[in-house]
Nucleic acid binder design. Sequence first.
DNA 1: GCTACCTTGTGAAGGAATTCACAAGCATCC
DNA 2: GGATGCTTGTGAATTCCTTCACAAGGTAGC
Lengths: 207, 207
Amino acid sequence: MKRIADSTVRRLSIYLRFLEEFEEGGLATVSSQELARRGGTTSAQVRKDLSFFGSFGKRGLGYSVPELAAALREILGLGREWRVVIIGAGKIGAALTQYRGFRQRGFHILAAYDDDPEKIGRDLEGIEVRDMSRLEQDVENEHAQIAVLAVPSEVAQHTLDRIVKAGVKAVLNFAPSQLHAPADVTVKSVNMAMELEGLSFALTNRD
Amino acid sequence: MKRIADSTVRRLSIYLRFLEEFEEGGLATVSSQELARRGGTTSAQVRKDLSFFGSFGKRGLGYSVPELAAALREILGLGREWRVVIIGAGKIGAALTQYRGFRQRGFHILAAYDDDPEKIGRDLEGIEVRDMSRLEQDVENEHAQIAVLAVPSEVAQHTLDRIVKAGVKAVLNFAPSQLHAPADVTVKSVNMAMELEGLSFALTNRD
DNA sequence: GCTACCTTGTGAAGGAATTCACAAGCATCC
DNA sequence: GGATGCTTGTGAATTCCTTCACAAGGTAGC
């Protein structure tokens, strides 16, 4: 398959969110223009994004909301349940573990991991904090596919190496450090300090 | 000034992080190649990124670590202290409030805001949770420049409108919704569910 | 069935970001 | 001081992404 740009996938996520709102509202069809308006893009962009995956609309009418939503869920791989482990049960890790948005979208959190004896054994709204030393065996036994890294920067790379070795192919990293992984492992990073620096730049370099 | 791409600013942040490590390690100079290796990019990219802002290196030698670090801090507007309010003291908001990475980089958190009487008055590691109704007057009196939005999706746009009206020109949004703001207000969004969907896509559409 | 009107899907054009490739500058060594 | 080796800064080339513009296909009204 032709390589799909990251920005395209992002937008598909956004479109899906709107479609789900429309589904709830009982709206039957929607045009690329309406999706564009809400998503802050152009109708041509919406149609181009979709065109990489097929033809989902009806000329003159637009897109069937439930059909397009189903198609996007399929494309994004959201038809199934993904098994996720959260590594690091500090402030960020604990907040993520309890974040409801994940489960709502089919991401099933198996457990959180930490090496602080104070934290091990705790229960975070039904999710257990386990001993970090069990990480590899649990990942393998429970077939975790996605890992969320919320450990201190200093140990992020080492922890990544561990989970990659255990077979995880997708990682969401919250540590403010640049990670290196084999090409068949997808790593996405969320770096809040960096985003703030982007704001600082914008505020500083205004015309 | 020529418009600088978002991706460039992001990379400058990354370079700065490495330079600060080098500073601590007492390293005097660094080449574009070394910065590229660590940052997962190319040396040409590093030089091009820097070239938008001036010439910072010495041919044959590389860049002086402290000089380049200072230049990047200047470019990114990190020479000063930014005043930040956090709106929403739920799981995410509370975790952000207590996150040390912000203060370390010159982002001073003035307060957190919530409308839950249970939360108002609490102390989050030295930062007060205040009544949401005080938001506008506090922003104006205390000259907050940056707002971090960690409120439920349903009220995100309304809250954004409030802080924009109060004069805030930079917003970091954690609500999973698409926000609309005037052109002179910079809004950056961090959407964890969306990032996870990107991973789901990657796992699903592997060759 | 015919007309008027919409909206999609998509090649082509345009624009933006990245990579290439090399002249120019500086340090070091002999 | 000249030769050697290294690294920057930057136009040019390339690749990637977005926008344009329009033919094709569909609906609705009469």
